[in-house]
Design a protein around this nucleic acid. Structure first.
Lengths: 218, 218
DNA sequence: CGGACGCTTGAGCACATTCAACAGACGTGG
DNA sequence: CCACGTCTGTTGAATGTGCTCAAGCGTCCG
């Protein structure tokens, strides 16, 4: 978010922010509310999720330290398109839309950086959209797990652990399936020695094996 | 794209552009190529589509006059995430990445406008993603048709026609299904008096009926 | 006139959902 | 500390939506 700004500018931008804390599960902003604040994660994580009117949930992404949430406050959207809730004890920086307007005027670079962030996410979302449209469930789960180990992988003995409390339901909400199918799939993978699963956690033992499934190798 | 710019600025921005024509089906930019140009549709339409490595296609959206294509050239992406091809004889404005950099420096507002555009599309894509993840095929087709009549609806006797040559395959690529299912669905709708279908074209007779299906009323 | 293209329709099947029941882990409060 | 309720996860069986495979038809165009 701050890339391309000189130290002085960064100090100015930070000085204009406020800090908030959020406990595990606490909501930072809610889908449908007026989008009058931009956030940046300082500590912990945010889970960005979306609720359709029919009641089903989709998880759009997880955000870690340094990442922006509610970029739409800078773009033109008047309401948040999704809900952000804290995963574990977290801390975020906040800028009001007003403050933001002034900052962007002084440091136009901020707008460009947001643009870069959103472009990147847009590309990712398009890719996930295409996956969802054309690939089978097992493949999608594999790709999602791979993305998660990039985003939040943690080396442990015997593999790479996804350092987010991740329920079967969460994975289902990311891949557009049900927790049942996710459970079955992960169990099968464990039997095959690809992963090690536990309550709200997944450790990938054989990254190459999972990658193969993700690429269509059955 | 030009909103918030004064007349003089608009003249400057336009003066820096080049014009290209594209015949029906001709490709404007290709997925994976370096994204060194920003486009704006002047006449006709562009179809933005994406090809996965497994070979299946998804249609991301259609763009009409005044809309920007390849916004990523302004954001940070180095390669186009999708392919743009002309639908019918079309004309587009072009700005090179270099020119664009200079323009943005002089008129920072351009960056904000792009941000607004992408934010809007991001929101729409998120909504479609959620649809794809949670709704049945018929519902998704209904919603897609409704979106299309907003984007390219044309009042005709007996309904609203979608003024784009739209094959069953195209609709399938937008909804993540097969042309077979789309064909069956549209035929059923025609029997029910909801739409009037023809070769590469759809005319919605009963918008409310289609909307009901889109909202889950079976 | 012939071929390519877009579309329709039927039959069978497979993947994933739905329905259902249960098991274990965790947290809470008496 | 144990009893209880809640939350998360597992697994089986039945069901069904939508895909795949297959064949054929009409229309547009060279």
């Amino acid at each position: 978010m701050m890339s391309g700004l000189d130290d002085d500018a960064v100090r100015n931008v930070l000085a204009a922010s406020a800090v908030s804390s959020a406990n595990d599960g606490e909501v930072v902003f809610v889908q449908g509310e007026p989008s009058d604040t931009l956030f940046m994660v300082l500590e912990g994580r945010l889970k960005i999720s979306q609720l359709t009117d029919s009641g089903s949930q989709t998880v759009v992404r997880y955000l870690g330290p340094g990442e922006m949430a509610g970029c739409v406050a800078m773009g033109g959207l008047t309401h948040y398109p999704a809900t952000a809730s804290a995963v574990g004890a977290s801390r975020v920086l906040r800028w009001s839309r007003r403050t933001l307007g002034e900052l962007v005027e002084r440091f136009p670079r901020l707008a460009l950086n947001s643009l870069a962030t959103i472009s990147f996410r847009m590309e990712e979302l398009q890719a996930r959209f295409a996956e969802l449209a054309s690939e089978r469930v097992e493949q999608r789960i594999a790709r999602t797990v791979l993305r998660l180990i990039v985003q939040a992988g943690e080396r442990v003995e015997g593999g790479i652990r996804i350092a987010i409390p991740l329920s079967r339901q969460d994975l289902a909400d990311m891949t557009g399936t049900t927790l049942h199918t996710v459970s079955r799939t992960l169990s099968a993978w464990q039997d095959a020695g690809l992963v090690q699963i536990g309550r709200q956690q997944v450790t990938v033992v054989a990254v190459d094996g999972v990658a193969m499934i993700g690429n269509g190798g059955r």
